Simulated assay, not measured.
Amino acid sequence: MSRPEPFFREAGAGPGVVCLHSNASHSGQWRELMDRLAPDFHVLAPDGYDAGKSPAWPADQPMCLDDEVALLEPVLARAGSPLVLVGHSYGAAVALTAALRHPGRVRALAVYEPTLFSLLEQEAPAPNDADGIRHAVTAAGEALDRDDTDSAARHFIDYWMGPGSWAATPAPRKPAMAESVRQVRRWGDALFNEPTPLAAFRTLDVPVLYMVGERSPTSARGVARLLCATLPQVQPLTFADLGHMGPITHAEPVNAAIARFLAGL
C-alpha cells in the first residue's frame, strides 16, 4: 500500500518553516503568515488528515499524533533540516510531537496553545482542567450520533470561541466547518490518549515561543501551565485580548510575534 501524500501550500526560499493548522481548519489559515515570511524563509503549510485537500483517515482505525507526524514526512523532508515548526491548537500538539520524534531535525518551535490534554490527565484524574473540552467532545459526538452536524459544530466551536460563536459564523463557512467536526471523537482520542509523558518535553532543548490567549478556556491554559514549566528554552507570550482561536481571529499580532521570534533565531 502506498503512503498517503498530504496536500501543502508553499512559498518563499530560505530556511524551512512548516506551519500546522488547528482542528476544523486547513492550511489556508496560514496564508497571511506565509506571505509575511516568504521573503526570508521557505514556508510550507500542509493539510492534515481529513482537512482541506489531504486524504481521509481510514474510519475503521484509531489514530494517534504519530500518525499525523508520519503524514507530514514528505513536507518535513522538503523543508530541509534543521527546520522551524509553527502550530496552532491540534497542529501545535502535532508540532511538539514531531519535534520529539525527530531530535536534531527541528531547531525551534512557535506554538499557540497546543491541545495536549493527555498531560492534564496524567497530572490528575477527572475532574481536572480538561473537563470543559471533554464535555464538549462528548456532546458533539452525541449530536453526530443523531446526524446533527450543526449541533455538533455548535458544541465544539462555542467551547473554543465562546457561546453564540457558531450562530454568528457566516453561513457560507458553516458547511465545511460542520463537516470537519465529524472527526471530533478522533481528535479527542488522539489528544486525550497521547502516551508521551510531561517529562519527555524536558529533552526538547530548542527555543520554543509558547503563545497563549488570556481569554482562552481552562483546558488550553492548563496545558500551557505544565509545558511552560517543563520546556527548557520556553519563551511564554500572553495576548491579553485573544482567545484560543487568536491565530485566525487576530492573525496580525500573532503573525508579528512569530516573525519576530524567527528573526531572532
Score class of each variant (00 low, 15 high):
H155V: 01
K174L: 09
A190Y: 07
A167V: 12
P172F: 03
P207H: 08
D189Q: 13
P172T: 10
V181Y: 02
L198T: 07
A136G: 11
P172C: 01
D129A: 15
M211A: 12
P172Y: 05
A153P: 13
A140G: 14
D158K: 03
R146V: 02
V208S: 05
A190G: 04
A143Y: 05
V212P: 01
G213D: 02
A140R: 08
A153S: 12
M177R: 13
A167R: 13
P195V: 09
R134D: 12
D148H: 00
P175F: 12
G132L: 00
S180M: 14
T169L: 15
R202M: 11
A139S: 14
H155Y: 15
E194V: 02
H155F: 13
Q183R: 15
F192Q: 05
H135Y: 08
P207Y: 09
A130I: 02
F192D: 05
Y159L: 07
P175N: 11
V212D: 03
L198A: 09
R134S: 09
F156S: 06
V208C: 10
P175A: 08
G164S: 01
P195L: 02
D150P: 03
E194L: 09
T169S: 05
P197M: 05
G132K: 00
D145G: 00
E194C: 13
A167M: 02
A152I: 04
A152F: 04
S180L: 09
G132F: 00
E179Y: 04
G162S: 07
A168W: 00
R173S: 14
E179C: 01
L198I: 11
E194P: 00
T169G: 00
D189S: 15
D147W: 05
D131Y: 01
M161Y: 04
P175Y: 12
H155A: 05
R154G: 01
